[in-house]
Design a protein around this nucleic acid. Structure first.
Lengths: 199, 199
DNA sequence: GAGTATACAAACCGCTTGGTCGGTTTGCAA
DNA sequence: TTGCAAACCGACCAAGCGGTTTGTATACTC
């Protein structure tokens, strides 16, 4: 049977509760006391697994937020028709997300806007995340370009970067609007853009 | 000569210093003590002009952030060629903004991401701001459509919304990257999109 | 010039925050 | 069975926060 103490489980529990709190309240406003009580874990346990709040934040970002985000892109870009893959990802997200998800927005975008200017660690993490996304998309576009799927004239790096920006912008407006209708129109706008890349 | 006490000047001073602090640190992390000491104003003065921090925040958003943002759009959309107007606005911004501006990002986007989920007032203010921008762009597109400047098939509302999202997304990535080069590529991407709307 | 509302000054307050630290319990190895 | 390190507990702390209150100086009105 499982032991009374399992450090991995404890750490994961803290991580997940912290992620949820930070998704809703942001990094700074996420209270350690609140996290501890919701995770049913003592302060001693937390500070045993993480040096301080900052490192907890970094871990949440890297192990949960970034991972979720990248896996979504991996799925979309693995489709044989990359453009359709992206569009399907958009409508899938729209179908799956709850009202709370809409209100909370994209955690990467939220943390980035809150912290990038005042914490170099978060700035590097978020920038790195965006670069990885852009790189993935760029490679997919280059592949598609060779296959004759997308127009030949386009600058794949620039386009990939703009697609990432489009996503983040949609996340921003989704959060600000709290409106599924707005989200739908925005997705339609991005889908149009993506499809116009087709050869 | 000017009186020793001028309530309007005092209020404006508080507003401007608060705006600067919130631009850098966000709303919650902007400290009233810090604002007061930088503005060389007492706590009594602040609480004479504003009921609480929240109302100060709302005033900063409405009277400074929103105004600056909207005036930029007004200028761009007043051009006879709206598409060029937007593109010029992009390159003007790029030329004028300092490294600090890049690092701080767009204050509307920053505040929106920080507060929209936890404060209905900020949520409404930011959404309203985005809607006004979108409306302005939509009307400009409709005008241009009648003039035969832009393609006839486009959905002006959806396109306008996506342009606003594109802007916010660029602001997000600009802040996260702290890189002028990235900003330039993003602007180029958006400019391409805007120009492809041309008839 | 008196009276009064406005405009400020600054000491003060309760509360929450992230973080510390001495002590205790658990699990495993020898 | 013993020994010890890892895991955890929770009382405690200083600092900073937004906000209140009491008092005073200025400016305008009559």
């Amino acid at each position: 049977m499982s032991p009374v103490r399992d450090p991995d489980v404890t750490r994961q529990k803290i991580l997940e509760v912290a992620a949820e709190e930070m998704r809703v309240h942001g990094y700074k406003a996420a209270s350690l006391s609140e996290i501890l009580s919701k995770a049913e874990v003592s302060k001693g346990a937390l500070y045993h697994h993480f040096a301080n709040k900052q490192e907890l934040g970094y871990a949440v970002f890297e192990e949960l937020y970034a991972e979720e985000c990248l896996s979504r892109w991996r799925g979309a870009l693995a489709q044989e028709d990359v453009l359709d893959g992206i569009c399907h990802m958009l409508s899938d997200f729209e179908d799956q997300c709850s009202d709370e998800d809409i209100a909370c927005g994209c955690p990467v975008n939220t943390i980035s806007q809150e912290m990038a200017a005042v914490d170099d660690g978060f700035q590097k993490q978020t920038f790195n995340m965006y670069q990885r996304q852009a790189r993935m998309i760029e490679e997919a576009l280059l592949r598609s370009s060779e296959q004759g799927l997308v127009k030949s004239g386009i600058d794949c790096e620039q386009t990939a970067l703009f697609i990432v920006a489009g996503f983040q912008g949609i996340a921003s407006m989704m959060k600000a609007s709290r409106s599924r209708e707005t989200l739908h129109k925005l997705h339609a706008g991005l889908a149009d853009y993506v499809q116009h890349l087709r050869a």
